[in-house]
Every structure is written in C-alpha cells, then in structure tokens.
Amino acid sequence: MTRAAAPVIEKSPSQTLKAQLLLRDLIVQGALKPGERVSELQMVDRLGMSRTPIRAALVRLEQEDLLEALPSGGFAVKAFSERDFAEAIEIRGTLEGLAARLAAERGVRPAQLREARALLAELDTVVRRETIEIDVSLYVELNARFHALVIAMAGSTALARQIERASALPFASPSALVPVQTRSPESHHILTIAQDQHRCVIAAIERREGSRAEAIMREHARIAHRNLERAFADQRDLALVPGAALIRRAEV
C-alpha cells in the first residue's frame, strides 16, 4: 500500500510548484491587476489544473506577499506603493548586513573563502574595464551566487529564511534592478563600485570585522535604491523592474 501511494505524494509538490510559478508570472507581468480578486475556481479554468495545487499555490503566494486574503474568501493581488518598493530593498539589505556581520563574528570555513574568491574572480571578468557591454545575464547569475554565499556564511537557518522571504518580492532581490542600471551612462562605473564592495565585504568577513562587514553590505543595497529612483523617474526604466505592474504610483 505504501509503495502504491508514493507516486501521488511525489507528484503533488511538483504540481503545486507549477501552479505557483504560473500564478506568479500572471501577477508579476500584470496579467492579474493590483486589487483584482483571485479565486481557486477562476484559476482552475484559466490554468487548466485541479483545485488542490492551485489552493496551495495561492497560500504560498500570500506568504510571499504577492496576494492578500480577503475576508469574504479568496485572495486579491496586492498593490505596492513607491515606498513599499524602497522599504523592501531596505529590509533585504539590512538582513544581508546582519548575515555579513554574523559571518565575520562567527568565522567561516576556508572552503567558503575559496569559493568567495573564485566568485570574485568570475565577477571581475564580467565588469573588467575594457568591456564595453557587460553580459547582464551572467552578472545576475554570479551576483545571486555571491549574495547566497554571504548568507550561507552566516550559518543561520532562521536568518536565511527571513532573507529568502524578503527577497521573494520580485523587485527586492539583489539583481532585480540590474537591467535598469545597464541603461545608465554610469553603468560600468556603478558595477565597478559594486564589485569593490563585494571584495571589501569578503575581506571584512575574513578579518572578523563584524561591524565593517555589516556596514558595507548595507551600503551595497544603496545601489539598488539608486537604481529604483532612476526607474521611478523614467517610465521606460520602470518597465524593466520585475513586478512594476504591481505599483500604485503616488499622485503628484
């Protein structure tokens, strides 16, 4: 009996994940508008999936803060203000700063430092001065790995969980605003600064300088704030921000 039930148990999470990804895309791309009601039955028809994985996916997206539960039942797509966008980035940067400080104070394994140096070398090849146009997709991948490594260095499952939640909002992840940055005339200069901050935070962690590591990592998040301000000033740039369709612009 146990063996016969195993395929069903294995299939359910993959169906839930599929529903979650499909729904997230509809929300982030603006196919489901801020404030729009989202129900299980509605999504069953739209996605052609059963109610069970869709129900689980809706709950997960509420946990990611992309949906909000309605008193009458069902969910609604959450709307965000410009301030919400900025605060999400600030929260993520603050938590990553804490991760860097814990990593420095607790000490990290030699293997993690070797991995960090290898990552820094790879990032150097992307942002090297003689390059006119950077490989954005490669930079995003390496940057995500760098941030994940700093979080892993902290050795705190609880903190990692909170950072994952803070970064789940599409516009709050470490590389979410890199496409906006690449449109700036100062793009290469900003990337060079960001890479120097990467090096400095690893050096501070290695030297067990907790306060310095935290300060650098928090300052590193200010680059995302700068890119966000640029996006708010230009509709073409804002269109490059993941989840921009969810924003409720402040009235002038």
Rank of each mutant, 00 (worst) to 15 (best):
I151H: 00
T157A: 12
I205W: 11
P170I: 01
D196Q: 14
V178H: 08
T131E: 14
E130A: 02
V150A: 01
L149P: 03
V150Y: 07
A176Q: 10
I205E: 02
D135R: 13
A172T: 02
I202W: 05
L169K: 05
L177C: 10
V201Y: 03
A176N: 11
Q195C: 09
V136T: 07
C200F: 11
F171Q: 08
A154H: 04
S187Q: 10
Q162E: 12
A158R: 14
E164G: 07
A172M: 05
A160E: 14
Q195Y: 09
I134M: 12
D196M: 11
L138H: 06
E186P: 00
H198Q: 03
S156K: 01
S184P: 04
G155L: 07
N143L: 10
A203I: 02
R145I: 05
I205C: 04
V150M: 06
E133V: 07
L159I: 08
R145V: 03
I132Q: 15
A152L: 12
A158P: 09
A144S: 13
I163H: 00
A194G: 11
A168R: 08
I163L: 08
V140Q: 14
I134C: 00
E133C: 01
S184T: 05
S156A: 06
A176H: 06
T182E: 12
V136D: 05
A194E: 10
I163Y: 00
R129K: 14
A194V: 14
Y139S: 01
L177K: 12
V140K: 11
R129L: 15
R145E: 12
S173I: 01
E141I: 08
Q162D: 05
R161L: 02
Y139F: 10
P170T: 06
P185V: 09
H198F: 14
Y139I: 04
H189R: 15
A158D: 15
P185I: 09
R161C: 01
Q162V: 10
F171W: 07
V178Y: 02
A168Y: 02
T157Q: 07
V180Q: 09
T192H: 11
E133W: 15
S167W: 03
A154V: 05
A160G: 11
S167K: 07
E130L: 06
S187W: 15
V150I: 13
T157H: 04
A204P: 13
P185C: 12
A166L: 08
S167F: 10
S187H: 08
S156L: 04
P174L: 08
I163D: 00
A194D: 09
I205V: 11
T131R: 14
